[in-house]
Design a protein around this nucleic acid. Sequence first.
DNA 1: AGAATAGTGTCTCTCAGACAGTATCTT
DNA 2: AAGATACTGTCTGAGAGACACTATTCT
Lengths: 227, 227
Amino acid sequence: MSFPKPNLAVDLALITVMDGHLCCLLMNRQDAVEVGGDWALPGGFVHIDETIEQTALRVLQQKAGMETAYLEQLFTYGNLNRDPRERVVSVSHFALVPAKNLAKAVRGKNQLALARIIVNWDGETGGAASAFSEKLGTLNLAFDHADMLGDVVKRLRGKLNYSDIALELLPEFFTLRQAQEIYEAILGHKLTKPAFRRKLTDRKTIEPTGQRETASAFRPAELYTRI
Amino acid sequence: MSFPKPNLAVDLALITVMDGHLCCLLMNRQDAVEVGGDWALPGGFVHIDETIEQTALRVLQQKAGMETAYLEQLFTYGNLNRDPRERVVSVSHFALVPAKNLAKAVRGKNQLALARIIVNWDGETGGAASAFSEKLGTLNLAFDHADMLGDVVKRLRGKLNYSDIALELLPEFFTLRQAQEIYEAILGHKLTKPAFRRKLTDRKTIEPTGQRETASAFRPAELYTRI
DNA sequence: AGAATAGTGTCTCTCAGACAGTATCTT
DNA sequence: AAGATACTGTCTGAGAGACACTATTCT
């Protein structure tokens, strides 16, 4: 091959639900003027001896300090000027992480932020997203990462109906109310309790433990776990 | 960037339904021993001044002689030895083409074949596929193209429930019976007529023309068209 | 007329949403 | 006991599958 090749990278949206909000890990960039924004998804180039998935795992470990997570490839972005400095094609992924794990990864590192993902559309119809932090306000996203985040939300909403990926966002033991909060945060609207409970308990992927939550005001709910 | 980069390519599954069978365009290769099979999906490298989508369109034009088609990006394959000769990462796409158009593209070119896609699983659960031609028997697929074809079928089956992409496989004017054959070929099982008709006519994406098919034995069916 | 397909009416079953009720725990 | 939340019973309506029926066109 003698002709010049595009660079190949992986970008990673680390997703969680915290306090009822769909959130994402972002990294602060010093080269904001060049790349079009202050904040970006963690990413890295695909090395010659790495598969795409291995690159994603390496980014997960090096940039977020996490060993493992539910990881899924999403889409490959190849617009000519998505990185204004040079040609970079990027394979986006999302990772689903329980809130405590992601909060721990961010703690003490002020180049990392856990921002809310804001979308202004409903259902599964697409569009870009924006990022908002209580401390820092609206975060300006670099590259085409606003589009990437929008596509992540779209995919998550689409998959909720026919898969159990949302359970990846919960700790090992959880109440059905916690599960419902996860679904509501992703979908962006409220659900009715009885229907939600039936849907989840009818699937054979969770089971009651007989234990109950502790430190709750009023009646404690039963704890479930994934099978 | 000083480190070596992977090559970046696009592979294209040109899909149609012919005589009740889900089919795909394949190209004969002379380097079968090196690449692991006689037949491959048409593909090409992503040039430095091309988007991914532009590469896919160029492959569509150069390799299949078609100007345009419904085109969708599917998945990016990056296993280290998927091309035994050198490192190639490939972004797979599928294109949906009415049977007549694809048959016309193949006609007279004996390096091209229109092969049936064979899967041995049901529903939407994945796996690899194989290719079969009435004239040539089972076609040996190069690279990881058996996996790619399996993923194409999986995606198509998944999208049938909530989109109208199957209508891309029909000519401008078509009967509901023809539409049902398309759906049945993709899903791999029969559907019931009244339910299928309701589902299609309830969506606001097709409308009756008042015209009827010609040259049919017995009662001719009404022709519909996409809105 | 007969054959074969086009197209429809209706029953049932399942499932999700909605509401209202009962149960149980903490303060 | 009071209050707040966990959990459930049941009604209703939408939608898919199945079956049987009618309608239309060609030979």
